[in-house]
Design a protein around this nucleic acid. Structure first.
Length: 286
DNA sequence: AGCATTACCCGCACGC
DNA sequence: TGCGTGCGGGTAATGC
């Protein structure tokens, strides 16, 4: 489920809770259940089990597409990759507490990790494709230290952004997808942002003018804020409740009219990723 | 040689 | 049934 808006939305759910589930802040961890060992990047399962229980959750933050659960001693990090999701379950404690039991959870066969808190509240990591990863570390910088700037951070000025862009000869789309360049954009929001900014996904980054860089950064921020307001997008069989998919400009709109100019959106492949753009108003400049 | 960029590939579910 | 596709990114391979 995860690009910046979806991870931000999930962070909010975990902090404040939802209609059907309580928030997690201030709760004490009791026990860990790892059902797919490769979901855990580090430390070992034994060390995780030895360190995390007894710790109290202080706060929940997001950095790029990472979700950070700050406990009093350690930080538990999740990366949802392609299909991961985190849900709080306070109603089926007796079933979820025992991973060997015939769980009747809707996505039970894809549960990879469960963290039991006090009062029968569980944080459940669901991940059909098994690409998601979990870390427990003293210093979260060990995991997220290499990320590029946050697109919504006001400290990222248009001038800085243009400088960063012009330092690379790469195509703009793969560059925006590179998390060490900018943290949080994925395939959807890159296509959306480039369409709004009227930039071709194959535009070489070093040829982007200061004026275009400003338009692009503003477009990225506009799209991300809109997506967050809609609680992210729900795509394919992975449904989380957000409805930004109903407001896509380019992504998965092949053959439909561009919202800028009415020409038909086309699908090409750029950097091994399906890419949706308008061949009329998103043109390469030199 | 050494950095920047590109191609593979990892489970699984779904639609054509 | 078979094949292409996919809200991602680590790593090997290649390019400059």
């Amino acid at each position: 489920m995860p690009e910046l808006p979806e991870v931000e939305t999930i962070a909010g759910y975990l902090r404040q809770g939802t209609a059907g589930s309580p928030g997690l802040i201030g709760r004490k961890a009791i026990k860990v259940h790892l059902l797919w060992s490769r979901s855990l990047e580090r430390p070992s399962e034994g060390e995780l089990q030895a360190r995390l229980p007894g710790q109290v959750l202080q706060s929940i933050t997001r950095r790029g597409k990472f979700l950070l659960l700050h406990f009093n001693l350690d930080t538990l990090l999740f990366h949802l990759r392609m299909s991961g999701d985190l849900v709080v379950d306070g109603n089926q404690a007796n079933l979820l507490t025992d991973p060997q039991s015939p769980i009747t959870h809707p996505q039970s066969s894809h549960i990879r990790f469960i963290l039991n808190f006090e009062d029968g509240i569980n944080l459940v990591f669901v991940d059909p494709r098994k690409f998601g990863r979990i870390w427990l570390v003293r210093d979260p910088g060990e995991v997220v230290g290499g990320l590029g700037p946050e697109p919504l951070d006001p400290d990222l000025t248009t001038g800085k952004f243009c400088q960063l862009l012009n330092a690379h000869r790469r195509l703009i789309k793969p560059l925006l997808l590179d998390q060490t360049f900018l943290a949080g954009l994925g395939n959807i929001y890159t296509d959306e942002s480039l369409n709004l900014a009227r930039l071709h996904p194959c535009q070489p980054a070093h040829l982007i003018s200061p004026a275009q860089a400003e338009v692009l950064l503003n477009a990225i921020r506009t799209i991300l804020r809109q997506a967050i307001n809609h609680r992210g997008a729900s795509i394919d069989w992975v449904y989380r409740g957000g409805n930004f998919q109903n407001h896509f400009r380019a992504y998965q709109r092949t053959g439909k009219p561009c919202l800028n100019c009415g020409s038909l959106i086309e699908r090409i492949v750029v950097g091994q990723r399906g890419t949706h753009y308008c061949p009329n108003c998103q043109v390469i400049v030199s």
